[in-house]
Amino acid sequence: MDVPVTLAALQRRARSFGAEPLLTHYDLATGGRTELSVATFANWVNKTANLIEDAGADSGQVGLPLALERPGHWMTLIWPLAAWQRECAVSLLADDADLVVIGPDEPRAIVPGATFACSLHPLGLGLRNLPAGVLDYTTEALAQPDRAGTLPCGPNAPAFIDGACVLSHAEVADVAPVAQRVLVRPSDSLGTLRDAVIAPLLGGGSAVIVEGAADDARLAAIRAAERCVE
C-alpha cells in the first residue's frame, strides 16, 4: 500500500520512538507551552483522520484557512497529516473544500459539509456555544477512536494546494531531513509545516515552534532551555 513518505515516517517513529518529543509549541502572547511526543502527535492525527472519514470527506479536499492565520500552531500542523491519511489534499482556501478548518474568532459555517473550529488553547480546551453548522474540533476529535485506517496514496497525488500551485506528496516532502532539535519561527504555511513537522519526522529530530514577538535574547533563552541546536 502506498503511504505518503511523511505519514509513513510518523507511523514508523510512533511505533519505535513514541515517547520522544516531536513538537513543542510556545505561544508568547499567552505564555502557553505545549509539548507533544511522537505518540501524542500521532494520536491526534489518527483521531482527526477519523473525523475526516466521519464527515464523508475521504479522498476529497480539506480547506485549511487556519494555516494562513496560525501556520505554527500545533492544532494547525495536525490537520495536513490527518488529511493525507484519508487521501485528501490540503488547500489553504475553503473553495471547493469538502471540510473546512478555522480558528476561534467569529466562527461560521463555511461549507455545506463540516466546518471545524479550533480553540488554539495550549491544552486543547474546546469552544462552547458555536453557531449551527460549526463543530468544536477538540470535542469531536477526543470522541474518536485512537486508531485510524490509512487510504493508499501515491507520491504523485496532490497533497498541498496554494491557489494555482498544486504540490504532490513527493514535492511537499522534498526537504533536507533534520536529526536535531531545532527552533522554528513560523513563516508561510508550507514552509512552517516543512520546518516544524516534515523535516524532523524524516530525520528523527524535533522542533520547538515559537509564535509571537520575541527579541534575540528571548529566543536565545528558549533555545538554551529546550536544548536546541544553534
Rank of each mutant, 00 (worst) to 15 (best):
L125A: 13
T150P: 00
A132S: 12
P152T: 09
L127A: 05
L130F: 01
V134F: 00
Y137R: 03
C153S: 13
G163S: 11
P158M: 10
A132L: 10
Q144S: 04
P145T: 10
R128A: 15
D136N: 06
D136F: 02
C153M: 15
A143Y: 09
V134T: 02
G154K: 12
L135K: 06
R128M: 14
P131I: 04
L135M: 13
G133A: 03
A141K: 00
G154R: 13
L125E: 14
N156S: 13
T138E: 12
Q144I: 06
N156H: 13
P155S: 10
A141I: 01
G149C: 08
I161C: 07
D136W: 01
L127E: 05
A132T: 11
L127V: 01
L151M: 12
R147N: 06
D146H: 08
A148F: 02
G126E: 07
A164I: 13
N156R: 09
A157I: 09
L142Q: 14
I161T: 01
N129T: 08
L130P: 02
L151C: 03
P158C: 10
E140H: 07
A148N: 04
C153E: 07
N156T: 11
A143H: 08
G133Q: 06
P131G: 04
F160D: 00
N129P: 01
P158I: 02
D146E: 14
L130K: 00
D146A: 12
T139F: 05
G133D: 12
C165K: 15
D146W: 07
E140T: 04
A164S: 15
L127T: 03
C153W: 07
G133L: 03
C153R: 14
G126C: 07
G126H: 09
Q144M: 15
A132V: 05
D162I: 09
G163P: 11
P131R: 08
L151E: 04
T139C: 02
T150Y: 04
T139M: 03
L130I: 09
T139K: 02
